[in-house]
Design a binder for these strands. Structure first.
Lengths: 119, 119
DNA sequence: CTGATGCTCGCACGATCGTTAGAATGTGTA
DNA sequence: TACACATTCTAACGATCGTGCGAGCATCAG
């Protein structure tokens, strides 16, 4: 591609390419969407999200038992799901109860559908 | 949690917890779903997916121009989208044309809806 | 007040990732 | 056949990530 960068476009007409380039959101605008994708990009975390989908609201120690993972790791992952807006939490005495948000359920449904698993 | 691991369940009845634990897919089964999430977890790659959504089928050099990224990097990311089943490619002479799969479009729609961007 | 429980936080380690760069491959053209 | 173009592949680097561990905090029960 030459220095002025518009003379070697081969497949797109220039108007369409200019429009695409202009309309594409910047990387900053996509950070939260990318974070949502990242939140469910780890099999352990994805499995915890499925446990919340199927089991409803649960505390860390129950999720730890259900997923056969240490409670500290489960707590770590749940905080990432919450940070990405896919889960929320409330305290009940010394326990913290987590559940999926609407966004979390929708994204989980799309992800499992896309991969054809756990629907 | 004690050694026999069922005596400290506090919030769930044991039957429900046993069923959840039993029914949760294993990590292996979730790998492809996690890979789909991972494929869209990078802002640059997500942006390329959006460009394909809006622009239809495109070659690497056009996507490089539209996204203002080097063609080698674009090629690298497109191969990851394809590997995750979210994009597909066909050759046209020396060029390779990429487009989103149905799964890719569905997951992209869910991800952008979940984050409230680029819809 | 003390000890136990549930959970979070900070740190470290090995693994993975995004980007860059150079080399290599496939295809088209003269 | 040689050169150019489009794309891919391999390797390296700095950054990030998942997991494990010990310490710390909040809450509850005795």
């Amino acid at each position: 591609m030459s220095a002025d960068e518009t003379c070697e476009l081969l497949c797109l007409d220039t108007v369409k390419a200019e429009r695409l380039r202009h309309d594409l959101p910047g990387l900053d605008a996509l950070t939260s969407a990318a974070e949502a994708g990242k939140a469910l990009s780890d099999p352990t975390r994805l499995r915890l999200a499925l446990a919340l989908r199927d089991g409803g609201e649960m505390c860390v120690c129950d999720l730890a038992w259900v997923s056969e993972r240490q409670d500290k790791l489960v707590s770590h992952h749940l905080r990432q799901l919450r940070g990405a807006g896919l889960a929320c939490s409330r305290k009940d005495g010394r326990m913290v109860l987590y559940s999926l948000t609407g966004r979390g359920e929708a994204l989980l449904a799309a992800l499992t559908a896309a991969a054809g698993v756990a629907r």
